[in-house]
Simulated assay, not measured.
Amino acid sequence: MSTLPKIAWIGLGIMGAPMAENLLKAGYPVTGHTLEADKLKRLAAAGGTPAASIAEAVREADVIITMVPASPQVEAIAYGPDGILDNARRGALLIDMSSITPQTSVDLAAAAAGKG
């Protein structure tokens, strides 16, 4: 059993997929979610666990990493009943690596702090 933190990776595009794969190569357990089925297959082929939803991906994660295009996509994956904040466990670390506005980061940090 791994003592490394469980990683959830949301956004397996041009940059996200190879970064998630590098974590897998380093021995980290990675569960990923993205909107494209072929990219979920790529994650599985690299040893990761594909998730059918954001909720499924983040539920048991110690660390959640997001890499999506811009602020609207970050807001779409973070908020709401199927989003990160309503499904991540208390104490999980959320790392956003998307190209977003500073205000989106501030707002997301405040909302995440409110969830614990």
Rank of each mutant, 00 (worst) to 15 (best):
77 I>S: 04
103 Q>G: 06
81 P>R: 05
82 D>E: 13
68 V>A: 06
56 E>A: 15
21 E>S: 13
94 L>R: 01
13 G>S: 06
41 K>T: 13
42 R>P: 03
3 T>G: 06
29 P>K: 06
34 T>D: 11
46 A>D: 10
7 I>P: 05
7 I>Y: 05
15 M>F: 12
94 L>D: 00
88 A>R: 10
6 K>E: 12
19 M>G: 11
61 A>L: 14
66 T>W: 06
23 L>Y: 07
82 D>K: 02
103 Q>D: 11
94 L>M: 09
10 I>D: 02
99 S>R: 06
93 L>F: 10
115 K>L: 09
45 A>M: 00
105 S>M: 11
1 M>D: 13
40 L>V: 11
8 A>M: 00
17 A>H: 11
28 Y>S: 10
102 P>R: 14
27 G>T: 02
76 A>Y: 13
54 I>R: 09
108 L>A: 00
16 G>K: 09
83 G>F: 08
32 G>P: 01
34 T>K: 03
46 A>R: 03
102 P>T: 15
106 V>D: 07
42 R>N: 03
24 L>P: 02
14 I>K: 12
77 I>L: 07
75 E>R: 15
49 T>W: 04
110 A>L: 14
52 A>S: 14
61 A>M: 07
29 P>L: 11
24 L>F: 02
50 P>Q: 11
33 H>V: 10
61 A>E: 05
13 G>F: 10
107 D>S: 07
96 D>T: 04
